[in-house]
């Protein structure tokens, strides 16, 4: 599993609740550089010098969700997947989590998904 790019400070996602969490899973191999996501939301979807999306999934703050959704839905290749699983319920990766933590409804995303 890829890790999220650290776009924001450590408070990123601190207000996420179950049902409002959002992450954009970036399928890099499917990106063909249409750059429609970036046209919708340049601050969320960052491109490399060739115009293709930077690698790494993108954690979305509550205030950016609509823009992020529009950006993800604009991809002609379907390279951007919207994941609404609260971070605590996702497959564990590099961070060990106990059962109590998995039930948690409020998580610090940046702490759990280091860049």
């Amino acid at each position: 599993m890829t890790t999220a790019a650290p776009r924001h400070g450590a408070d990123n996602g601190a207000s996420d609740k179950v049902g409002s969490a959002m992450r954009i899973i970036v399928h890099n191999t499917k990106c063909q550089g249409h750059a429609r996501c970036s046209a919708q939301a340049p601050e969320i979807f960052k491109l490399d010098d060739e115009g293709y999306i930077l690698p790494g999934d993108i954690e979305i703050t509550a205030g950016e969700q609509l823009l992020a959704l529009q950006g993800a839905q604009s991809c002609p290749e379907r390279a951007l997947e919207v994941d609404r699983t609260p971070a605590a319920q996702r497959e564990p990766d590099s961070v060990e989590r106990g059962p109590d933590e998995l039930k948690s409804t409020s998580v610090n995303v940046a702490a759990r998904w280091p860049g």
Partner: peptide
């Protein structure tokens, strides 16, 4: 029209390089 994921510039690795 929103969410307009049209095919004018093609799909896949040969997406029109001049599309932008």
């Amino acid at each position: 029209r929103e969410n307009n994921r049209h095919a004018a510039f093609g799909y896949g690795p040969h997406r029109c390089i001049g599309s932008h």
